[in-house]
Computed example of a mutant assay.
Amino acid sequence: MAVDLAERRGGAGRRPLVLVGPYPAPWGGISVHLRSLQQLALRSGYEVEVLDVGEGHASRDGSDGVRDAGSYGRFAAELLRVAARDAVLHVHVPGNNVKAWVVAFAASRARPGGLLTVHSGLAPALLDGSPTARRLAWLAAAGYERVLCANGGIAAALERCGVEPARLEVLPAFVPGAVAPADPPAAAVAARARFSTLLAAALAPGNQYGEDVLLDALGLLGARRPDFGCLVYGPGTAEAAFGERLARRGLFGRVVPLGEIEQPASLGVMRLADAFLRPTRADGDSVSVREALGLGVRVVASDVGHRPPEAVLFRAGEPADLAARIEAALAAPPPPEGAGAGDVSERILSAWRSLGLARVRKGVQA
């Protein structure tokens, strides 16, 4: 019945879905989730396009359904076009800077009544520390039917901004199975052959990603387990400066940097590992943690954000505790495949339909 009502609301059955946010590459959490949602909509028979406001926006020509919306002028023009099309809008922002809330506010005024997803575990610190950000977040949220939050801390911070609790929902930002694992880089395969115990981790620039915590923990672990190596991938890991930091800690050769790799290859890297590590100081809901658990790989993650129960947690910012938890995880059996996935596909589809999204192709299972 809900689908029939949504289709009647859509008139001729052609209300497109418009996703707003960063799109791969780079291969960060929000962009990967956005692409997964695009694929979910297409599989379910909906018309969908993406407005890319991320780093790669200038390369978009719209031919694959992804349009350039990264400059102020392009964003404004695309919002006017979206409003004229009577689209269902689903906006994704980190929420950890004022610009993100400006994007959310502008989109809601162009096409009120859509969905907003807030991803970053750093969003509460911004909102609690800045009256301007709190006011802007409240104004932005007022233009959406519902606000989806990657964890409870984000939802609580938005409540403190004055957003009604009934419009807030905590929902993991993860749709499993969007892509299949691909062959990992040759350096990763060689490391698997060289080390009897192999770990893996994703890093990015910024204190919140915990590079120092990870490397200090690996140094402690190396004193007790000379048999282990660690694959590390993500922006900056192929740079000479990262290699120098490894050398200063005596980890050069034991830690194998892979640089930034595409999502299918990163899944291939995870499958090689005995455990995947997430050393962050702040998190929303980590796509990589859920990917690794879904592949049946042990996960050791900091005790921040929204963690699946199958993950082994360590105290954020404490390398000694991370090293101890790695050893404990390795002594236990790996999780079954599919563990911790937290598939939200049906809840997302239901939310889109409740806003009037209608199928382009009749008879497609949604």
Rank of each mutant, 00 (worst) to 15 (best):
A76G: 07
A186L: 04
R43T: 09
L19M: 10
E327Y: 00
G153H: 05
P24Q: 01
A332G: 14
L89N: 00
V147Q: 06
L34K: 01
W101S: 14
V53Q: 04
A240D: 08
A142V: 12
L277Q: 06
R359F: 03
S120M: 08
L37W: 01
P235V: 15
V179C: 07
S36I: 07
S44F: 07
V82L: 08
A223S: 15
V82G: 04
A87C: 11
S196G: 13
D283F: 04
E159C: 14
P319Q: 06
S120H: 08
A329L: 11
A137C: 09
G222E: 01
P181Q: 02
A104D: 05
A87Y: 03
N207E: 12
S196P: 11
V98Y: 03
I348W: 00
D61G: 05
L171C: 14
R160W: 06
R361G: 12
L126W: 04
L171H: 03
A328P: 07
N151A: 14
S36R: 09
L19K: 05
V179H: 03
G363V: 13
R245F: 05
L40M: 13
Y46Q: 07
R81T: 13
L199K: 05
Q263P: 00
I348A: 01
P309Y: 06
D212R: 07
Q208W: 02
A329N: 02
V98P: 01
H306G: 09
A84W: 04
V118C: 06
A241Y: 04
S302P: 06
V256S: 06
C230R: 07
R60D: 00
E49A: 13
P26K: 12
G253Q: 13
A241P: 14
A25L: 08
R325F: 01
A323Q: 01
P308G: 14
R194M: 11
A341E: 15
A201N: 07
R134A: 14
A178C: 10
A12Q: 08
L168H: 04
I348G: 03
R359V: 09
A238N: 10
W101H: 11
A273C: 12
D274C: 11
P16H: 02
L126P: 00
A100G: 15
R359E: 04
A187I: 12
D321E: 09
L215H: 03
E346D: 06
E291L: 10
L42P: 07
R249A: 03
P334S: 14
G222Q: 03
A328L: 11
G114N: 01
D68P: 03
G143H: 05
A150G: 08
S350E: 15
E244G: 05
L158Q: 09
P279V: 15
R353E: 15
A328S: 13
L79K: 10
A186E: 15
R359D: 04
S354K: 12
Q38F: 07
A265W: 05
A204F: 00
A77P: 00
G338C: 12
V299L: 14
R224Y: 02
I154N: 14
L277R: 00
G243F: 13
R361F: 12
D212G: 05
A247S: 07
Q365D: 08
T197Y: 01
V118P: 13
G152N: 08
G219L: 04
